[in-house]
């Protein structure tokens, strides 16, 4: 962006990074991009029962310039794709994209000529949220995980290089475990499937195997 790219990385900028990330994370303003049934769940999340304003994000911005998180909720048709891209381009940096529901993430059950097979063909996606539609808790969970990602985002290329050298992968445990109080944590851990708790499951498909097929 500016100064932080030219200075060597050090104590001061590390603290600035933390502060900047904290302020970005604690007031994400979402742009409305409700396209289908997932949008109903998204609206519910903003309502009194689930109340997204607890995380400083109750106002769904109709103007992209005032928003920094785009929640793509619903199936993206080929005709909608350029519109979506334009809205994304109009949003000011830094910006994030949350792909809500299976249709936005991969086309879901609509594997046909009319639907874009995953919104990541058009815009870079930071968080995928499966579900058809995902319940409001799942959306809040995805947002909490995105908060965690933003919190650890490097500021400028120097910090990015440093972080890449360390090579730590960010663990994203289920939010109800990560944010549970010390008292309820153990009880919650017992009910969660064991391999979900580590944040990383025991296995993901090795790339090699995918290429062989």
């Amino acid at each position: 962006m500016g100064l932080e790219e030219k200075l060597p990385s050090g104590v001061l900028l590390a603290s600035v990074e933390k502060l900047a990330n904290w302020s970005r994370q604690s007031s994400l303003w979402p742009a409305t991009f409700g396209l289908a049934c997932c949008a109903i769940e998204m609206m519910t999340s903003g309502g009194p029962r689930y109340d997204l304003s607890r995380f400083g994000m109750e106002v769904f911005r109709a103007s992209p310039r005032q928003a920094d998180l785009m929640i793509v909720a619903g199936r993206v048709s080929q005709k909608m794709a350029p519109v979506l891209r334009q809205i994304y381009d109009q949003m000011s940096e830094p910006k994030w994209v949350l792909s809500m529901g299976v249709c936005a993430s991969s086309g879901g059950m609509f594997n046909n000529y009319a639907i874009v097979q995953g919104v990541d063909h058009i815009v870079p996606v930071d968080m995928y949220l499966p579900g058809c539609p995902p319940r409001p808790e799942m959306l809040i969970d995805a947002i909490m995980k995105l908060h965690e990602k933003i919190k650890h985002e490097p500021m400028g290329p120097n910090r990015a290089k440093l972080k890449a050298e360390k090579g730590e992968e960010l663990a994203l445990p289920p939010s109800s475990v990560a944010h549970a109080s010390a008292k309820t944590r153990d009880e919650r851990l017992r009910t969660v499937p064991p391999n979900e708790v580590e944040g990383k499951r025991s296995s993901t498909i090795p790339l090699q195997l995918l290429e062989e097929r």
Binding site: D120, Y128, E137, L172, S175, S203, T204
Partner: peptide, 15 residues
């Protein structure tokens, strides 16, 4: 269990 969101498409293919 429903808290499935992840930032990687590949991780969401459960084996």
């Amino acid at each position: 269990f429903y808290e499935l969101a992840d930032d990687d498409r590949r991780k969401l293919i459960y084996t």
